[in-house]
Nucleic acid binder design. Structure first.
Length: 569
RNA sequence: CGGGGCGUAGCGCAGCCUGGUAGCGCACUUCGCUGGGGGUGAAGUGGUCGGAGGUUCGAAUCCUCUCGCCCCGACCA
């Protein structure tokens, strides 16, 4: 491709709305253009990258026995009412009406449609297992779209759905998909991690997320460097870091904390580590008050809390409710001397193992120090894992301590079991001629998000440094003074033709711009290899080669450069 | 949904407080010089100042409403 016949639109300054490096660079490099909030055009250059990702995903899916099809983006409401998700999915689903006033949605996902296909066309166990997939535009009306195509409303997704006669078959395909996803992200050249995930509302027995590792990631991941344990912190089990409760050594006393309402402030005033304080959170569930006790430096995990008995539909108590129950403002709440017949005390495992701790006195402007379980207050009504795991916690597999890193979720695989098949009555006849419910799995990859995530992981001060597998072109030829030097022109034209003949995706910057302009543009858009041809080197029969991530260029004989590039791409 | 901020040329911004008929940098067009890291000179193109209504002799500027965009938060005491 010649730049003069392509469409480049680079910017020196990023639009002010872009915050993340990947978003800024995608805008500056002219990969994408925004149409409206969460809606982006993939410009020619960006589309080439998107297609690279798409093709790798397709190749690997096909290699693993996936069968591609394409379902409609617009789906009838009727189908969603059958599974009850028309209401459940909520405002994230874009609902539309046709001219006859019939209701539809722009598909946020395709379990209903694919299961409808399965119930119509799958009749026998002989047709199972089967794994359908598609690569298609989805629409989810996000509360807050942000970071460009990272969290857009309209996005490209690969979604696969497998159907099985029994759970063992589902588990087998699930493992195949796990391996397929690992191969896809490896081929793309990304640093990633597969983590155990919460199955959430979708249900089912198994689920893994695939994350591209990046500081800007919206998810926190807990992993053990000494083993293969890895989980989303939402799910990671938090063990008590303290082996056993130590004996009480301090006497309990109230201290003045006139303005100190947070653990941080109290710890600072008393000049003690935050790890010796305990904070209380008042939750209301089933009309009852629950006090959650967490160490001062820990944070509540709402997913874990909602799984405790009687707390499925909890909410945080309001200030007014707290005052009514405790006759004390929030910030000074304490567990001592409260009516335990009305309030349930739920302690995190860590808190249950603490001694001589500091907690609110349940008295305005006072905290209590030297508090000990049993001696000063009855043991908790329930000891449970209610916090987010933190770095330094013991790994749940007992093989070391946890580290925390951040990731961008780019893939998610689920064992759906029979949830949708039951609702939509998707059945088959087994070998005995008996009707059975079909087992299902589903497997998603955020194709467009991968592009943003990859750039988030691969950029420098000059621009994008995408892995070769995703780069829009493999090689750029930059001629210096092409318009003036016939020797340069002849050399680059020959080289360009030779590269094309060799099957290299080559871009020729034939704009006859000043060198700095061309270098800057080509570095910005992220091409892995560059050959510079100028009169200066050509006199000696030389050109320059430089990899996008190389410190400096190397001089190469013109006659050898094609071989060099062939060995690199 | 709550809070904050911003809408002026393709992009980045100034002007608004204190009303007087719109400006800067980049980009773009033409010509010249230049020619290995976003060079330079000259001459240009491009904006109903997000929209509607109001106040005023006069509104980008003041008032009201509205639309859009961005950020933070969504109960962690």
């Amino acid at each position: 491709m010649r730049v003069s016949q392509f469409f480049l639109s680079t910017l020196k300054e990023a639009p002010s709305e872009a915050e993340l490096p990947s978003h800024q660079l995608m805008m500056r490099a002219g990969y994408i253009k925004k149409l409206a909030s969460g809606l982006y055009t993939w410009m020619p250059l960006g589309l080439r990258v998107l297609r690279k990702v798409e093709n790798i995903v397709r190749e690997e899916m096909n290699r693993s026995g996936g069968i591609e099809l394409l379902m409609p983006a617009v789906q009838p409401a009727e189908l969603w009412r059958e599974t009850g998700r028309w209401e459940v999915f909520g405002p994230q689903m874009l609902k539309i009406k046709d001219r006859h006033d019939n209701e539809f949605c722009f598909g946020p996902t395709h379990e209903e449609v694919i299961t409808d296909i399965a119930r119509r066309d799958i009749r026998s166990y002989r047709q199972l297992p089967i794994n359908f997939y598609q690569i298609q535009t989805k629409f989810r009306d996000e509360v807050r779209p942000r970071f460009g195509v990272m969290r857009a409303r309209e996005f490209m997704m690969k979604d696969a759905y497998s159907f099985h006669a029994d759970f063992a078959s589902l588990e087998q395909t699930y493992r195949v998909m796990y391996d397929t996803y690992s191969r896809i992200f490896t081929r793309l050249g990304l640093q990633f991690r597969a983590v155990a995930a919460d199955t959430g509302a979708i249900g089912g027995s198994g689920s893994h997320e695939f994350h591209v590792l990046a500081d800007a990631g919206e998810d926190a991941l807990a992993y053990c460097p000494d083993s293969d344990y890895a989980a989303n912190v939402e799910l990671a089990e938090a063990l008590a870091p303290i082996a056993a409760r130590e004996a009480a050594s301090e006497t309990m006393k109230n201290v003045d904390t006139p303005k100190q309402t947070t653990c941080e402030q109290v710890a600072e005033l008393l000049d003690i580590p935050l790890q010796r304080t305990v904070k209380l959170l008042a939750l209301i569930a089933e009309g009852k008050l629950n006090l959650m006790l967490l160490r001062g430096d820990h944070s509540l995990n709402e997913v874990k809390v909602s799984k405790l008995p009687g707390l499925a539909d909890f909410r945080f108590a309001s200030d007014e409710e707290i005052r009514a129950y405790f006759n004390c403002p929030p910030g000074f709440l304490g567990p001592i001397g409260i009516d335990r017949s009305k309030v349930r005390l739920i302690a995190d495992r860590t808190v249950a193992a603490m001694s001589d701790f500091v907690v609110g006195a349940n008295l305005p402007k006072f905290h209590t120090t030297g508090v000990n379980w049993a001696r000063d207050l009855p043991e908790p009504d329930l000891v449970a894992d209610i916090r987010n795991a933190v770095a330094g916690d013991p790994s749940p597999d007992g093989k070391g301590t946890l580290e925390i890193c951040r990731g961008i979720e780019v893939g998610h695989i689920f064992q759906l079991r029979t949830k949708y098949a039951e609702a939509l009555k998707a059945t088959y006849l087994d070998a005995e001629g008996k009707t059975q419910i079909i087992e299902m799995g589903c497997y998603g990859i955020g194709v467009s998000r991968i592009v943003a995530a990859a750039i988030e992981q691969n950029y420098d001060k000059r621009g994008i440094t995408l892995p070769a597998a995703m780069a829009p072109f493999q090689l750029v030829i930059v001629p210096i003074g092409m318009g003036k030097s016939e020797a340069v022109r002849a050399a680059v034209e020959q080289l360009y033709a030779d590269c094309q003949a060799a099957g290299i995706e080559v871009l020729l910057d034939d704009r006859d711009e000043r060198p700095g302009v061309m270098f800057a543009d080509m570095e910005l858009i992220g091409l892995p290899h560059r050959i510079v041809v100028g009169d200066r080197g050509l006199k000696e029969g030389n050109v320059e080669y430089q990899g996008r991530r190389d410190e400096a260029a190397q001089v190469v004989a013109l006659q050898n450069v094609l071989e060099l590039v062939k060995s690199k791409v």
